[in-house]
Write a protein that binds this DNA or RNA. Structure first.
Lengths: 246, 246
DNA sequence: GGCCATGAGTGAACGGTGTTTACGAGCATC
DNA sequence: GATGCTCGTAAACACCGTTCACTCATGGCC
């Protein structure tokens, strides 16, 4: 079981503790509170000791981002679990509502992961294939649901919206990426069911979902909204209707 | 002209300089670089002197937010100027594109003003009427354009989308707020042209505009996008079509 | 014109931060 | 048992926001 040596186990344990405490500070007191000295204090060690685990504070925060993503992924998985796999609309609604609920419940984490203005490549510790390794676990769960919907031929792109020509090359790459990712997740999507138009529809879906959630988290309504829930559901209904999901 | 005394003029001048330097630091080196000591250093004074002007660093940042808003408002005004007032669609496009361009060109400022996770009341120095005084100048310019469109009866809400019942009270307040604000801006909008459904449409318009811009600024696309411009224009076309603007 | 309150700015200090460096104790291995 | 490697410490440096006691020019008032 634990082939790791005694030292390795100890190291892994404190590493877990570090991230755990960092996370607690982030949630309870905001991002400016996640400070090396505070983390060390909670663990009963001194700040420089943390440099045995992370090269800098920013490095730690980066790993924190990945942790948050992973947690979000399992949380969305839990939201998805009670919905029967055959209820495709229900699954889509569950994951979208789950994402919103998570974001509203964890604004600090949401900001850290989804609203940090950083040039690409700095923010995300890219995996060996150049992809964002951290957010992948989160994206995968979205794509698994989307894949199941696609595999059942439940999506119908609107013929009246045409894909902007300038986006076609990017979308083509996205399409291939989707197909491989879905295949990895065990969902077999016939390639002809996922055209460039479908990829475009998925992009637009995400844009609106992300946008609505971000607006809610940052409270950027043009007037005080007592309950944004119905607004979100209205948007969600519009969204599912537009992609032909019923 | 300058009735102010010598001291008052000096005070106002250094205040301007403070905000100017703070702004420069924000733009060039990010929010964490706008530090009291750095600002003071640039001005050739010491940090405690800044406390004669602002009660704390947070207070200064708050005023910085207002400055940014005001600048955004005048910039949008400039974008709007070359478009003839009769070209309503052109005005709407100009202001939306202007907002996007500003956000992409000033990500730090955008984050500061539009993506800071803060409970309401803390963030914005509310005016005497309880409204967000800073963002008002920015919202007003949007509303002026919207008002002109409305006054000409160019908006047609879709009959197939119904307003969520839970939002009606909020929307009613928003509607009245809109009418008074538009009247203040010199645009006379007949009250019957701005129903709750129209207010809802305007809300949705803003949600999608804000959402798309935020997504672009934070680069949260599910795949690398070489040029997001066409995507934005596509969304904008969709948006104007949905509100019946042609 | 002289007086004095006021207000801008200073310097030192306190407690906090990230980070580097030199050093010591303990574990794993030969 | 000696050796080397790893985790952790203590001290130090350079910053940061903020407070406080202090100067000193300014501006209103007699």
């Amino acid at each position: 079981m634990t082939q790791a040596t005694r030292r390795e186990r100890g190291r892994a344990a404190t590493d877990r503790e570090i991230r755990q405490q960092a996370r607690a500070l982030l949630v309870n007191d905001g991002p400016q509170a996640v400070t090396l000295r505070a983390i060390a204090r909670e663990l009963g060690i001194t700040a420089p000791a943390l440099y045995r685990y992370y090269t800098s504070r920013e490095d730690l925060v980066e790993h924190l981002r990945a942790d948050v993503c992973a947690d979000l992924a399992v949380e969305l998985g839990n939201d998805l679990a009670p919905v029967p796999e055959s209820d495709h609309l229900g699954q889509v609604l569950a994951i979208c509502r789950g994402f919103r609920a998570w974001a509203l419940a964890h604004p600090q984490e949401f900001t850290l992961v989804f609203a940090s203005p950083s040039e690409p490549g700095v923010n995300c510790p890219a995996g060996p294939d150049g992809k964002d390794a951290a957010k992948d676990s989160f994206g995968r769960i979205f794509l698994t649901v989307a894949g199941r919907v696609l595999a059942n031929g439940l999506l119908s792109t609107r013929p009246d919206v045409e894909v902007p020509a300038a986006l076609v090359p990017d979308l083509e790459r996205f399409r291939l990426d989707l197909l491989t990712t879905m295949a990895e997740s065990g969902v077999d999507v016939p390639a002809d069911l996922l055209g460039v138009d479908t990829a475009y529809a998925m992009l637009q879906f995400w844009v609106r979902l992300y946008g609505q959630v971000a607006l809610e988290v940052f409270g950027q309504f043009p007037f005080p909204v007592t309950d944004a829930g119905p607004l979100f559901d209205s948007m969600l209904a519009d969204l599912t209707r537009e992609v032909g999901l019923h």
